[in-house]
Amino acid sequence: MFSSQGPSPRELAVQALSSVERGYDLLAPKFDHTPFRTPDAVLDATTEALRPLGPFDRGLDVCCGTGAGMRTLEAVCRGPIAGVDFSAGMLAQAREAHPDAELVRADVRDLSFGAGFDLAVTFGALGHLLPAERPAVFAGVHRALRPGGLFAFPLGAPPPLTSRWYWALLGFDAVMRVRNAVWRPPFVMYYRTCPLGAVSKDLAAAGFSVSTAPLTALGRRDDGTPRARLVLARKPT
């Protein structure tokens, strides 16, 4: 939920009517006090799932935002860590929280890193990419990883049709599509454009071998399936 230190309704409205980059520049100082920040429970579950697969040396947080995901990299990486984002405002907040990290301002759809990282992660960023943009992002991450390197990110299970969350997310995406049809610049933020099957297909096309691991710490749905999985995309050796 929004805290008293979070953005006002007016600030949220201005952000929503801006471009993605400008919107996050505006929101950055208060972003960690919004429900848009990746919850600690998700970060902790991801960290615990990655520990048995490491240790890793260099780590990269793709679309790092204010740097929340870097706590996972710090926990599982022995070497230096880096973050990339296109919002200068978000990177300024990340720099305060992680002064020793290398932070790069760049468009993740055109990453220019060489093959120097053992682990790449991303949290909550796929909804800011149109499906047609994912292949370029995944190809860039593939280039940034050393042979045998791992790209990992949590992905929630779709809520059932009878859940209020199903209809809330459907309604949110519908509103965003109408907004982007009638207002420029567009603000790309969707919750239902990155199902596991489609994401896995795009990762495989980029050259990854793909598996998943249940994030059991985040609980199970009524049918016994996990509420979230960790997608594990491995660059072949």
Rank of each mutant, 00 (worst) to 15 (best):
E21G: 01
K201E: 14
A115N: 15
R105Q: 13
V62Y: 06
L203T: 10
E133P: 12
A233F: 06
F151N: 02
D107F: 10
A144E: 01
D110I: 12
C194F: 15
L215K: 01
L215R: 02
V42P: 11
A198E: 09
Q5W: 08
F172A: 05
E102W: 12
R234Q: 13
Q5S: 07
L230G: 04
R227H: 09
F187S: 07
S211Q: 06
W165T: 01
R58D: 08
G59T: 14
R227T: 03
D44M: 07
D61F: 09
V62R: 11
G127C: 11
A152M: 05
V108H: 12
G59Y: 13
T122N: 05
S18L: 11
T237R: 14
F123P: 12
S112K: 09
P7T: 00
M70D: 04
V137I: 06
D25S: 09
P160A: 04
P147E: 04
R22E: 05
S209Y: 15
G59I: 14
Y191F: 11
L145K: 08
P186R: 10
K201W: 09
P160C: 04
L169D: 02
P185S: 10
L130N: 07
A115L: 10
R146A: 01
G156R: 07
G23P: 05
L17G: 07
S209A: 13
S87W: 04
A120G: 13
A213E: 13
A174Y: 12
R143G: 15
L196M: 06
A168V: 04
P185F: 12
H33E: 05
A228R: 07
R227C: 12
L218D: 07
R164M: 01
G207R: 04
P135M: 06
F86C: 02
A106Q: 03
P214I: 03
Q5G: 05
G124M: 07
T237M: 14
V121W: 15
S163T: 00
L126N: 07
R51G: 15
V84C: 04
G67K: 05
H142A: 10
E102N: 11
A136L: 08
S19Q: 09
D173W: 07
F123Q: 05
P29E: 00
L170K: 13
A88W: 03
A41Y: 14
G114Q: 13
L26T: 07
A28W: 09
L215E: 00
Q93R: 05
S8L: 01
G116A: 15
V104T: 10
T212R: 11
K235E: 06
S112G: 08
G197W: 12
K30T: 08
T212C: 14
R227V: 07
D118N: 11
P80Y: 02
L119Q: 13
F187D: 10
P135Q: 08
